Amino acid sequence: MPRAARETEILSLACRAFGEAGYVAVSMADVAAAAGISKPLIYNYFGSKEGLFASCLRFAGDLIADDIDRTAEAGQVGLARALVTLEGIFEVLEERRWIWRLFFDTTRPASQELDAIVARYTARLTERAAEGVAEMLAAAGNADPLDAEALAAVWASVFDTLVVWWLGHPEVSAAEMTRRSARLFVAVTLDGDAAQRVLAEVGGA
């Protein structure tokens, strides 16, 4: 197997192990056994357990951030953009929900490198959230930068809360969670006619 393909296979297995059990509970021997390779080979590829975890963060971060970039460029505005963004993330995570947990692993070591990786992806997501919020407020005639900052903070909290809630309910599919999010959003933000239009766009109630 070519090295790039082997590294991707190892990263996929390591991401799942770290995401499900946490950094402290996973050994390099565990990952090597899951991949069917020798432990020295993993050290040869990634240098250390922390190096492997750093690569997992980059691997997972690219999957999430690249999809948010994709949906951001789809041209949706306001609530529609928010729902398209959530839909994309739910679909990315559906078969690998452990990815999200990597960024909130309290057992990972204190490390400037790991902190910097998490901060870099957080900044990418924050930037996209700020863009979406600014567009939505502009459409409503609101150009107040502090309003935009406050609403971006609210959106980031809501976004994370919905994803974390969904991770705790594995019986709920990505499609079902998208529809649930739409129902919740329209219940608190839109009138009845507008609500029905948005719900229709995500497959109904």
Rank of each mutant, 00 (worst) to 15 (best):
R183T: 04
D67Q: 14
R97P: 06
V84M: 03
I37R: 14
G204L: 00
A110E: 14
L41I: 11
G51Y: 08
F159K: 05
G203Y: 01
V154N: 13
R6L: 09
A119W: 08
S157C: 06
A139C: 03
W155D: 10
A148V: 12
G51F: 05
T161M: 03
V92P: 05
T8Q: 15
T122E: 12
G78L: 02
V154M: 13
G132A: 10
A14K: 04
A34N: 11
D67F: 02
Y45L: 11
G204T: 00
Y43M: 06
E7F: 00
D30C: 02
E20T: 13
F159T: 02
A74Q: 15
S181W: 05
T122A: 11
L167G: 04
I37P: 04
A29N: 14
V164E: 13
A25G: 06
A110I: 07
A139Q: 12
T8S: 14
A25T: 11
R101M: 07
A123L: 03
A129K: 04
R70D: 13
A123D: 13
M1D: 10
A174H: 07
L167Y: 06
L63F: 05
G22P: 05
A143F: 12
N142T: 12
R124F: 01
V77W: 06
A150M: 14
A143I: 07
E201N: 00
I10L: 14
S12W: 06
V198H: 08
E95D: 15
G19D: 09
V172Y: 07
V84D: 14
A116E: 13
L137N: 12
S38F: 07
R128Q: 12
A5R: 13
G75T: 10
G141E: 11
S55T: 08
G88V: 04
V24D: 15
G168Q: 06
I117Q: 08
E7D: 08
L162C: 02
S181Y: 06
E7I: 05
R6M: 08
F90W: 08
E7S: 03
A194N: 10
D115F: 01
W98Y: 15
R6W: 01
L41V: 13
A33D: 15
R101D: 12
I64W: 06
A17P: 00
A34E: 15
I89K: 04
D160L: 01
G61C: 02
M28K: 07
V188P: 00
A25S: 14
S55M: 03
V77A: 09
